[in-house]
Amino acid sequence: MKKFTKIISKAIPLAVENVDTDQIIPARFLKATDKKGFGDNVFRDWRFDKNGAINTDFSLNNPIYTGSILIAGDNFGCGSSREHAAWALVGYGFKVIVSSFFADIFKGNALNNGLLPLQVSPKFLSILMKTVQENPATEIEVDLENQKISIKKLEISEGFDIDPYKKTCLINGYDDIDYLVSKKEMIEAFEAQRL
């Protein structure tokens, strides 16, 4: 996993609540057996119509919005456990998703792929969404070390929570497998004691 460093980027607004993982990556694209290529189909049915024509109303297709931060409505990532959703967002180039609430499984999947699900207050989200929609050039800074997100020009910022273990993993690029495999002896002892 890549190390997560401080990010300064413009952002793309997605003012929709309850974005489910079927929208992030529709089921018909889940036939691959590797993790590559999902970025091409992220939000496929919102970006394109059934005939493959581009939906110019959708923010990801609007050239005025760029950047590696997605700002989304409440309850992002609900529904299916498909990690393909995280692979699709990372594949497209996102490093941070900002929302006022994340679904559990998506949140874990994102963290396991170096994608930061950054939860802010509904009030901060609303300011952030409006600012970016009105001024797409707005730069956002995400400082994981100090757990702070800032709208640079407005000098507004908010702190955010993250599990300290997960924070260490993101900053150092560690994943859970390394840790669990290192606990093998303890796991064997646990199994023996249960028999």
Binding site: S81, E83, G108, N109, N112, D163, D176, I177, L180, I187
Partner: peptide, 19 residues
Amino acid sequence: GIGTSQVAQVFASQCLLLT
């Protein structure tokens, strides 16, 4: 339900790291 990274974790250790 778990994601695929966690499927790999269970394959590797029969355990998961969870809060």
